[in-house]
Design a protein around this nucleic acid. Structure first.
Length: 424
DNA sequence: ATCCATGATTTCGT
DNA sequence: ACGAAATCATGGAT
């Protein structure tokens, strides 16, 4: 374009300055015939004028004129002049051709799209990121619905991305061939080196790849939005199933003196509740803090779960007592939890422990203890003091400080209370 | 619309 | 790395 203008100018300069262009020009050297020489100059001037003004004309006009120029007798000569000039200016063109390194941003986008499974292989691969995210956000049945929803949305994005990409590619190819054709046609009137064509193609590809980058960018944005909407667990908090909460609460209240499940216990709970271990940890973290903050509020719940597990525990006690065929004088009437009275409850547990040792689940013992503490605390609760001292929860509100097994004495329970949470 | 329950995250201390 | 405490953000009941 402006290169063309430059060439024109150069050409014009050459001839207008009256330099005889020697060498492979094919022009006749002036032979002293003033008339012919002037005529030729006039001729060349005419042609140049036509060439210079060709861009200002309408397409049809230009086409017609081009044809005229093509058939002009001077054309080969002018053409070779152009060739020569181009040869000379070729270096400067090459110099301006920058070999751009792979764009880091484009690479980032590509990597991300690949990681998200948008630009990767069609099947399976796409779900890798989604699966990982889904696993992180936990939840089995409920989550799989979300997951499939997410997957379908991702597939949608992926499809759009691919069709658009294809469209761009097609358009790029079409445009390239179009330009190539044009250049080929133009090569009849002006010299066009393969390098130049290559360069032109490169320019086109760069332009199109910048459009592609925009596509990739917006695809990335879409995926990000999708991710944040569907997979950000915080955004999309789901309450655990009732069953899961039940299991967790049971464990919590039956280990009230030390509600810190071990890694194995957490795994077990996680499996039972179909949630992740970290969710179990979160749950216990939240539960502990909230329980401690407002014990009164959790009274009812505590009673409920304590009673619940106490039933099974009591059965176990009965069975155990029967099995051991004990004649211990301290063996109480092991029937309902409500029948336990405070003074000998501690003895009972002591005897139970001594009878069956480690075969007793700490959970059961703890639950019974809890029930007992509850029954003991009722009088106080009814009297207006709703604060009942939970097992192992010391005055500072800490569980950990009160955990020296031999010194666990619940204020409401009196002496003899045994804690046996170390079973799990 | 508002409030409370609840799961997750963040910050900080150990 | 784990837990306490504070906080965020959402779900669900009212």
């Amino acid at each position: 374009m402006d290169e063309q203008a430059r060439i024109m100018q150069a050409l014009g300069g050459v001839s207008l300055a009256g330099h005889s262009v020697q060498g492979g020009m094919g022009l006749q050297p002036p032979h002293g015939h003033d008339g012919t020489d002037d005529g030729r100059k006039q001729d060349i001037g005419d042609i140049l004028h036509q060439i210079m003004t060709i861009t200002d004309q309408s397409l049809d006009e230009a086409q017609a004129k081009k044809h005229g120029l093509n058939c002009h007798r001077m054309k080969p000569a002018l053409f070779s002049v152009l060739c020569e000039i181009k040869e000379k200016t070729g270096l400067s063109i090459r110099g301006s051709q920058e070999e751009d390194p792979p764009d880091p941003q484009l690479m980032r986008l590509d990597n991300m799209l690949l990681a998200e499974g948008v630009s990767g292989p069609e099947k399976g691969g796409g779900s890798a990121a989604a699966a990982a995210a889904a696993a992180a956000s936990g939840g089995a049945s409920d989550n799989s619905i979300e997951h499939s929803d997410y997957r379908s949305k991702l597939t949608q994005i992926r499809q759009i991305y691919h069709t658009e990409l294809e469209k761009y590619e097609q358009a790029c190819n079409e445009f390239t061939t179009h330009v190539m054709n044009l250049l080929r046609e133009q090569s009849r009137t002006r010299p066009i080196s393969p390098k130049e064509i290559e360069r032109m193609v490169g320019i086109i590809h760069r332009k199109f790849s910048s459009i592609q980058m925009q596509l990739k960018q917006s695809t990335c944005e879409a995926v990000m939005i999708l991710r944040s909407r569907f997979l950000d667990a915080r955004r999309k908090r789901r309450n655990f199933s009732k069953q899961a909460t039940e299991i967790l609460n049971e464990y919590f209240y039956s280990h009230l003196s030390n509600p810190y499940p071990s890694e194995e216990a957490k795994e077990e709970l996680a499996k039972k509740c179909s949630i992740t271990v970290s969710q179990v940890s979160n749950w216990f973290g939240n539960k502990r803090i909230r329980y401690k903050k407002n014990i009164g509020k959790f009274q009812e719940e505590a009673n409920l779960y304590a009673a619940k597990t106490a039933v099974t525990a009591a059965h176990a006690v009965a069975a155990a007592v029967q099995n051991s065929q004990t004649n211990s004088p301290t063996t109480p009437n092991s029937g309902s939890s409500g029948s336990f009275n405070l003074p000998n409850s501690g003895d009972m547990f002591l005897s139970m422990q001594s009878l069956n040792g480690d075969s007793y689940q700490g959970a059961q013992v703890d639950t019974l203890r809890h029930v007992i503490s509850q029954t003991a605390g009722y009088s106080e609760a009814l009297g207006g003091n709703t604060m009942y001292s939970p097992n192992g929860l010391n005055a500072n509100g800490g569980w950990h400080d009160a955990m020296t097994p031999s010194s666990v004495i619940s204020p409401t329970e009196g002496p003899g209370s045994v804690h046996s949470d170390t079973s799990n």
